[in-house]
């Protein structure tokens, strides 16, 4: 073919442009996030705990059990046991580092369930409107008003009695699995509310109409046009939800719904309470897990607030 080109058609490299835009956005985001000192400190703390959670055995060896305990009962801190021992002689440093893994994994999975439920219900409810919106929002209001913590307390033993304590789901022991599901089921409502209100405003924009005019299905529009525009809210909300999930997990474990064989920080504090450590003045049994809980929840809150301010500038005044 030897037809002379009339005018050189410059091929638009759609992908290249998209990537360059993304890169610029990411760069802009990093620049603005770096300006938030509290957010940076929080992120650093979370990174540290993430490393501990991924490979606790690299730092303190395998999780000590009653049979592999290395010390005497309730020993105060010494050079052999930097953070002392618990009531059966297990090393507190060992337990606390391993607790990071349990607490963070439960928090992560519960957060994923919460956000998934909240985002799907929020987007669908806001986008479809009408009857489905009414029904879904009634349900959301119900879960919003319901004392979720007490519902969790009531739900957990029932589910546990049905499935049995020895069951396993996806390699997670039933007790922990139930905590994850219960937190997820009881805390999605506020996320759904936030996502829905944002969906309502995105829905009115021109590009959604255009997508509808050229025949985009509702599922397609929700996935490709609504979701990308509410994702900023989802990200900030995920981090804050994570803080809440760890808070709830710690509390549920503390009142005895945790798994003694996979001790989270809350479970350790439960054991401390049961063994009478506070009355005995055994501060080393309580301070390490309590400190970790507070620091991690605080770090998630700081990062979440910073992300919210950077990603959703409109809410910055709040």
């Amino acid at each position: 073919m030897s037809v002379a080109p009339v005018a050189p058609v410059v091929p638009v490299d759609v992908r290249g442009v998209r990537w360059r835009l993304r890169l610029r956005n990411a760069h802009e985001f990093a620049r603005r996030y770096a300006g938030r000192r509290d957010g940076v400190v929080g992120a650093a703390v979370l990174l540290l705990f993430a490393v501990l959670a991924i490979a606790p055995h690299l730092f303190v060896g395998p999780l000590q059990t009653v049979t592999t305990a290395t010390g005497a009962a309730l020993e105060p801190p010494s050079s052999a046991h930097l953070l002392g021992t618990d009531e059966v002689g297990r090393d507190m440093l060992n337990l606390t580092v391993h607790g990071a893994r349990v607490s963070m994994v439960i928090g992560l999975l519960a957060t994923l369930i919460t956000i998934l439920l909240g985002a799907v219900i929020g987007i669908v409810s806001g986008f479809l409107g009408g009857r489905s919106d009414q029904v879904l929002m009634r349900l959301t209001d119900f879960f919003l008003v319901l004392p979720t913590f007490v519902l969790a307390i009531v739900l957990a033993p029932i589910i546990l009695d049905i499935v049995g304590t020895d069951a396993e789901f996806f390699g997670i022991r039933a007790t922990l699995f139930v905590i994850i599901v219960v937190i997820g089921l009881t805390s999605w409502a506020s996320t759904a509310r936030i996502i829905r209100s944002q969906t309502l405003s995105v829905k009115e924009r021109m590009f959604v109409d255009r997508a509808r005019v050229i025949g985009g299905s509702r599922a397609h529009i929700m996935r490709r046009h609504i979701l990308p525009n509410v994702v900023n809210l989802i990200v900030a909300n995920t981090v804050l939800t994570f803080a809440g999930a760890i808070f709830t997990e710690t509390t549920l474990s503390f009142i005895g719904l945790g798994d003694p064989f996979a001790p989270s920080w809350g479970q350790l504090l439960n054991a401390a309470q049961e063994s009478g450590a506070p009355g005995l003045g055994a501060w080393w049994y309580i301070v390490p897990p309590a400190f970790c809980v507070v620091v991690v929840i605080l770090a998630f809150t700081l990062v979440g607030n910073a992300l919210d301010d950077v990603l959703n500038p409109k809410s910055a005044t709040r």
Partner: peptide, 23 residues
Amino acid sequence: SLILYSMPYFVIGMPLIIIFAAG
């Protein structure tokens, strides 16, 4: 406020017992 907001009740209460009751 943020630190207090991050503390479950028992995380506040147990140290209080150690200091003011047991100690």
